[in-house]
Structure formats: C-alpha cells, structure tokens
Design a binder for these strands. Structure first.
Lengths: 206, 206
DNA sequence: CAATGTACTTACCGACTGGTAAGCTGTCAA
DNA sequence: TTGACAGCTTACCAGTCGGTAAGTACATTG
C-alpha cells in the first residue's frame, strides 16, 4: 500500500518539525522531501499552522490508541500505572520524532496558545492521577501530590527518550545502548519504589 | 549598578531564545527589546550563533557554580544526591528561561552539532553517577544502571520545571500552585525510594 | 590638537519566508 | 462532449531573515 501524498506530507512534516521546530522547518523544505513544491503542500493543508495542527492531531490519535489498549489489558491499579508509564516510554523510544515534537509543544504552546488545545494531555494525566489514587498505599494522597508523582514518572521517561541524540554524542553509541538496555527495568523499579513507600506523608519518614 | 549593554543583550536573548527557540527568535527583536537596532547587537557579538553560544555559556557557568556549592555542603552520598537533584529542581523553577533553553538544547544540539560542546552536561552527569555508586545500597550497580537512574531523577525535575506554562493552561494557576507546593517533597521521597530499594537487581534483568 | 577606539546608526543586500493568483493536466461523472 | 474537480505547476508578492558597509557621536589618550 502506497501512502497518499497527504500522509506522506504529514510524516515528512512530523520529522522536520521534530528536528527543527515550528519556525526552523519551512514548508518548502518539507515539500522538497517528496520532490514536490510548497504549493502542493499548501493545496492539501491550507497553511503552515494547519499542517502543524494536523501533525499534532495524528500524534495524539496514535497516543490515545496505545493508552486505550493498555487500560484494557491489566488489572491492578499499581500494575496498570507501571504498564502505562512503561508503554509511554516504549512508544517514545520507538517514535522519537513524535516524542521530540511533544516536548517542543510543551515548551512552545504558551504562545501558539492552546490553539491545538490542551488536547489529549489533560485527559491522559487525569487518568493517571486516578490510577495512582486507586492504589491502596496511595489512597490518602491529595490530587496535587498524585499529579506531582505522575508527572515525575512521565518526566523520567520522556526526558530520556528525547535526549537520545544528545546522550549519544556525549557518551558514545555503545554506552548509550548499555544505558538504554537497563533503562526500562530501572524505570519499572522507580515506579514500584514510588508507590510502595508512598503512604507516610514524607520527609523524616523511612 | 546598571548592567552593561552587552549583559542586557545576553539576558534579553536568553529570554527570547527560551521562549521561541533559536530560529523563532530574531536578533532584530532581541535588540528592539533594549530600544536598539540589530546592528548594535551584531557589533557586540558578531553573529547570531555566537550570541547563542554566549547565552549558553553564561547559563552553564551559573549552573556549574550552584553545583559546586552543594558538593561542598553535605556529607553522605545519599544526602548529597538528594540535595543536588533538589537544588537543580529549584534552580530550574526559579530560572525557567534557562531551564527551557537547556531543554531546547537537548532537543536541538544534534544539528548545531556539539559546537557548543557537550559542555557542562557530561561532567555533571558523571559526577552524579559516581555519587550514586558511593551510596551503600548501590555499590554493586553498573555504570549504565546508575546513569539510567540519575537521568530519571533529573528528568523528573527538569520536565516539570519546563512544563509550568503548559500545566498552568491545562489545570489553572491555583491547581498548578498546589502541585508545585508538594512537588519538591515528592521529589525528595522519589530520590530516597529509588536509593533504598536499590539492592535487588530487579525485573527482566539478571 | 589629532588620533584612536567604542558604541552605535542608516542604508543596503541577497536569500528565504509564508502565502496568493492563475493556469495546466488528468480523471471521473452527467 | 462538457464540466467540474483534484492535484499539481510556474510566476509572483511583500515581508523578514542574518549580515555587510559606511558613517556618526562621543570619549579617551597621545
């Protein structure tokens, strides 16, 4: 099956936006990647912002789908949370373009103000928060504390996924590969550790 | 004390680069912020890339200084790690411009390839890794596993710091403030949990 | 006093930006 | 056969980009 021109535009755009950001990527360059002119692109998407919006939409669709499949698969809340975090991590390692693009959106969307909406992110976070709060040892947690924890776990995963190129250039490919090889297991134990010691308010605790 | 024009340029540039990224920020706009022309800016920095490099250098200097002061202050490795992570978190919350800029650099520097070098980051990570490995319960850890853990903790902090505007627009200022109020404590307990349960190899690995 | 240097300006430049207008080509339906 | 539309093209536009060149205004120094 050959992808439609429109879809080819979308994937080329995703790649370039991920690499250079919204301003750094020009529609002419994106079109040239398919051997077409920018007017061909404009014909399909109207203007640059709409193209960007479509890219974002297609990413959030993919993301939403992967979340749904996990929610269905596992039972206990603790496991569910662990699997969701890990699944998100895997998805981001496999599709680094979209991971980078989402990170950019996190940085930028203040100014392109919510035009793309707060999209999937809010629902996703909300869902993870309620999952945390249905873990036995976390029942007493405030919403805010749960959100803080959720965001830390997502951050741990997303940050690493997005840093692959930089880490590669710092430590070299082989050492990065070693780190990536144990990252997922390490992430799992981080999630578990965070949930287990959860109960007592904090600090002096042990 | 009035800052020199050069320093004013640097701080305006830091702000704008953080907000719009390298491509999104134009030197004319930066200069206009001081009521000057872009040629005044070029007079001081030669060209845009050099300006960007100087901004990065000034950030990494600040960062290096804050790290040094912590290393001196606390004794036990476990506490040292906790304090360093928390200190980094605080610094990033306080100076969100630099936090965003560093995040952008993490995303971009592949192409502006290491011209700004791998800078401070490598030494910093290296240092945290050895700190982890001098925690009793982590002595047996491989370098790779330690690096994975370190990166997760940094990610947890940095990701949140950088997401403030987006989170604000998703959840509203007050709920974000609630979350920020307990984030640091939550981060501390995450660090401790990660270190304490450390021993057993865990999960898929072995 | 002249000379030098710093901190800026106006006046340009060519390259590229996103976007419009108009037209060409093929397919498919009435 | 005709008309309409999708999918493209070339031609063009005003605006902005980073950067150069040349000059002005003002100190500092010999």
């Amino acid at each position: 099956m050959t992808a439609s021109t429109r879809d080819q535009f979308l994937s080329a755009a995703e790649h370039l936006f991920a690499e250079k950001g919204f301003y750094g990527a020009s529609i002419a360059t994106i079109a040239r990647e398919l051997g077409l002119t920018k007017q061909a692109l404009l014909h399909h998407f109207g203007n640059k912002e709409k193209l960007y919006g479509e890219v974002l939409r297609s990413i959030s669709e993919r993301l939403g789908a992967s979340i749904d499949s996990i929610r269905a698969s596992v039972s206990s809340p603790a496991e569910q949370l662990e699997e969701m975090v890990v699944a998100q991590y895997r998805a981001q390692i496999e599709d680094q373009d979209s991971a980078r693009l989402i990170m950019r959106e996190l940085l930028d969307n203040e100014q392109r103000a919510d035009q793309a909406g707060n999209w999937y992110l809010k629902d996703y976070l909300e869902e993870l928060v309620t999952t945390v709060q249905s873990v036995k040892s976390c029942e007493s947690r405030s919403r805010a504390r749960s959100l803080a924890l959720v965001y830390q776990l997502l951050g741990a995963a997303h940050y690493f996924a997005v840093s692959q190129p930089t880490l590669g250039s710092i430590f070299g490919k082989t050492e990065l590969a070693d780190t990536r090889a144990c990252f997922e297991a390490e992430l799992r134990s981080l999630v578990r550790a965070a949930l287990h010691q959860a109960g007592p308010a904090r600090a002096g605790q042990q």
